[in-house]
Design a protein around this nucleic acid. Structure first.
Lengths: 200, 200
DNA sequence: GCATTAACGCAGCGATCATTGCGATCACGT
DNA sequence: ACGTGATCGCAATGATCGCTGCGTTAATGC
């Protein structure tokens, strides 16, 4: 689904797209198999993808740029903004999707690698999230409701999910029992903090 | 101050400690100078530290382990838990310190590299934070006050700080004006969320 | 349908990395 | 103060990476 829309680069040739898709899939597969960052090299990726390393060097140049591109294509357009009729429901469903996405080891590993690859690749991981939040808030505002600031939602809903995924993976204290109960609590808190909002 | 307490490893010899300190400082300096992850190699670190690469290979083995060690020694024991007499003041002051620490490009770069190096190194970055929060909450509890859960503080204060530092560096919309006003808002929100807490 | 040109495969090159064995040095226990 | 053993410096080695010509393939425009 995401591999189909590959033709948005420089020269959407029929073969170029297939090569790019193969390389992207190779990176995701390798990183999902737990290959260490130092072992994740361009020749390895090229071999897995079935293309020659020269091609990868020419198209992407560096491993960081390759990871950034993969991350950008991986983290954009996957989550559809829900419309449950209310902001609370929208946020809850959306946050649940995000949490499920972050629970995937493949996604997490790719994000780690992207963060380590550089600032650009790191920002690519969350580029769409803000836009999605803005869309949901606009929906609610168009319904006539009072909505919190985007930054508030980012701080109180998005940030906790990413923090836990990155820094506390399977801590063993609240892992299994309450995955979506936590999401509900986060959404409730952000809607409650509307009253004590930062803006005057 | 942190370099003095190096003698907690395997063999706290006088020279081993100096070598370790030199290597640690070399890593921090190099990563602070903006050296790309792919250019940050063991020979480079060794050359900067004034030791031979063989030593680094033998003591740490991999670059990931080296980064994990550096991150652990860098992010432990730096922040002292304040005691202003009240939980709000403690959290505010502590969060301000954390935010200031995260604002340092050197710290941020080291954290990025550590995250990219692997899960162990990543967790080393925030190992002490939870303990510090627990300490502050215990202080307040000993004063007889009602305190929120540790996870709530992590979600609503710590997570936003780390998220912003990692994924939105100098976005250009609220960077300069209100660094500590944001911290105050976060602390206020966590104290307010006590009322609508998740726990029954 | 044909010319054009971008993109890919191939082979070879230099450079750097990661590792290993040995001698020297320094810290630690008696 | 001296012996013992760990740690470090040094030099050499094999392996791999990253890059650059050149020929070929196939996608695009007329």
């Amino acid at each position: 689904m995401a591999d189909v829309s590959e033709g948005a680069g420089t020269r959407p040739g029929g073969r170029s797209a297939r090569v790019r898709a193969a390389v992207h899939r190779a990176v995701q597969d390798l990183v999902a198999e737990g290959v260490r960052t130092e072992d994740l090299t361009i020749p390895v990726v090229a071999a897995r993808a079935g293309v020659h390393a020269t091609t990868v060097y020419r198209r992407w140049g560096s491993l960081a740029e390759l990871l950034a591109a993969v991350a950008e294509h991986r983290f954009t357009g996957d989550v559809v903004v829900p419309d449950t009729g209310g902001l609370a429901g929208d946020l809850e469903r959306w946050a649940t999707d995000v949490a499920r996405d972050l629970a995937d080891p493949d996604t997490l590993a790719l994000m780690r690698a992207s963060i380590g690859a550089g600032e650009t690749a790191a920002c690519a991981c969350t580029a769409d999230r803000r836009a999605q939040i803005t869309a949901m808030l606009d929906h609610e505002r168009r319904r006539g409701g009072e909505v919190p600031d985007v930054d508030v939602v980012v701080d109180h809903v998005l940030a906790p999910l990413y923090y836990r995924a990155l820094f506390e993976p399977a801590s063993g204290h609240d892992e299994g029992p309450a995955p979506e109960r936590r999401v509900r609590a986060l959404v409730e808190s952000v809607l409650a903090s509307q009253a004590v909002s930062v803006s005057p």
